[in-house]
Design a protein around this nucleic acid. Structure first.
Lengths: 183, 183
DNA sequence: CCCTTTGTCAAGTCTTATTTAACAAATACT
DNA sequence: AGTATTTGTTAAATAAGACTTGACAAAGGG
């Protein structure tokens, strides 16, 4: 995990602070920090957490999750890939090219009148964000139902059982971003 | 970091696999895995990486970054908070309530004709996703310029120097999600 | 009932994270 | 110039704790 050291060093130098100074803040020896930055030692989780906190970042960032370059950044409207086998009357469009390094998964979904995500509720790791672009969507979190009209948005943890349903007479459309990617 | 063990145990049980079986796959003793799951020991980074890989997830998820419940999930169109002090002619609306546990930051930005993000380019940790909802936006990654029309989207690493500019005669509007949150 | 399988615990081993102390190279001060 | 002070790095020693072994009780399964 050499990337850890590189990231730490970069953050440190961005703040223009010295290795010894950072070591003091973290309550570790300058030597250890040097070894970590040069990849000669691997920090314990607790010191890694300290480092992340100190820089206001996360362990995930430090270990380089989702750091690698993403190719083919742009997806044109007409080139969107579709995902089919979901619930009936529901269309899903990928708004980004598949890439294992992506942290987020942006999707556009279209719901025919009366269509829904099905009877069982979803529940998984990560978080989700939904912005309604057209129509009206009912979103259920646990037992609570939220009615979202065009322009309304919602943000929740995917570990909360969730489901959604089009309650508009016409087509409903929403942008959906979740993390981590599932497709 | 007791949360690590809880997450691992949950993932393991979701797969319906036994503690000993998982231990074998990871090349560690069942005892160690038990101690980790019950929070009596903290895994080294290398074994934690193995665990994350095994479940097709990330270290970040395992350490519980962005797992805690999010309150007040819904943001109504009329209740959106605005961020001002950005570049001139540029308006930013928060599409989610501030929450330190959020992994993503969904924003709506409106660009007056000829407005841009400024002369210097942005460069920071994380990733970004942009979907153009109205008008035409020019996005620069390193030296490459991309013209995005309504419905086009782009996904890139924030560590790539980036900037954007409205090249439409009218107002341009785009949805912008980045990770981790900066506001 | 016996036999296997489940997860956990105590005690020991051993890797390795971390410290101490010294080093050369660079910067600052006089 | 020279003399400190500060920079990051390294070797060796230490201490912490990750990890193993082996045994245990509880819970099925035959």
């Amino acid at each position: 995990m050499k990337i850890i050291g590189v990231n730490i060093k970069r953050l440190r130098e961005e703040q223009g602070i010295t290795l010894r100074e950072l070591a003091k803040r973290l309550n570790v020896s300058a030597s250890l920090l040097s070894q970590i930055e040069t990849g000669k030692a691997s920090p314990s989780l607790s010191t890694l957490k300290n480092i992340a906190d100190n820089f206001g970042t996360t362990i995930g960032e430090l270990v380089g999750e989702g750091q690698k370059p993403v190719e083919n950044p742009v997806v044109r409207k007409q080139d969107r890939k579709t995902i089919k086998d979901m619930a009936k009357g529901m269309r899903l469009f990928l708004l980004s090219s598949p890439d294992p390094n992506k942290q987020m998964e942006p999707l556009l979904f279209q719901l025919e009148p009366k269509s829904s995500s099905g009877d069982s509720m979803y529940k998984h790791f990560g978080q989700e964000f939904i912005l309604v672009l057209k129509g009206t969507v009912e979103i259920t979190l646990n037992d609570t139902k939220y009615i979202l009209k065009k322009g309304d948005s919602i943000y929740f943890n995917s570990s909360i059982p969730h489901a959604f349903r089009n309650i508009d007479n016409g087509l409903s459309e929403a942008l959906w971003v979740d993390t981590p990617p599932t497709f």
